[in-house]
Write a protein that binds this DNA or RNA. Structure first.
Lengths: 104, 104
DNA sequence: TTGACAAATAGACGATCATCGATATAATAT
DNA sequence: ATATTATATCGATGATCGTCTATTTGTCAA
């Protein structure tokens, strides 16, 4: 698992199309083509966005024949959001609750 | 409190300088000049970034004479991070814990 | 081997954005 | 009134980024 700093994480999710893709493959494994069909952009554009998400460790990848399947890495999402909360909301109750989970 | 969607939030924090500013005024009220002195950018640049953060509701503002003081809005940070977790990590334990706090 | 399909990469173009210097606005002090 | 200090805004510039078409790479079937 590559290390990702808070800025890289934020940049990775700071795009409408990318968040759309994240929603689409949140709880499912989908091929690139399936993702393309659920979006309004071309296949290269989807591949590009998946590469960005991959770079931030935000998707899991599984190659199968000529297809490549992606799914959102929820654990990484939790780790990154938790890090953000610890860094930028250290005085809140919620962050205390999250710390207990994240630091396990 | 203005409503902020996940994309706007991500864009707001997707910059190194902006995160630096967020760190600087995380637990303190600081004037613009004080923030400038703790960064490596000019005053107009700091004002610009503060405006972006203000637009996302991520800073609280207090005007006092000719000075303007800013501090990071930790509650908003928690709300936004919590929303991200609910949206993009719905199947995790941590998100369940956060839900209880955020939805109160 | 040839053709078809899936996905990634390359290159180009336009839009967005971070930054700066210059200026405007506003408040205080002399 | 004038000068000074604090902050915001304007306009320009260079860099980054999202998107596209075209092409390449890789896999499978006929």
């Amino acid at each position: 698992m590559t290390k990702v700093d808070a800025v890289q994480f934020a940049k990775a999710i700071a795009d409408e199309t990318r968040q759309k893709i994240m929603s689409i493959c949140c709880c499912y494994w989908l091929s690139v083509n399936e993702i393309v069909q659920k979006t309004s952009v071309t296949q290269p554009t989807v591949s590009h966005h998946l590469a960005v998400l991959r770079g931030a460790g935000l998707v899991k990848v599984r190659e199968e024949g000529k297809q490549t399947f992606y799914t959102l890495n929820q654990d990484r999402m939790v780790a990154c959001c938790g890090q953000l909360m610890i860094k930028f909301a250290p005085e809140t109750e919620t962050t205390e609750a999250v710390k207990l989970k994240v630091l396990v």
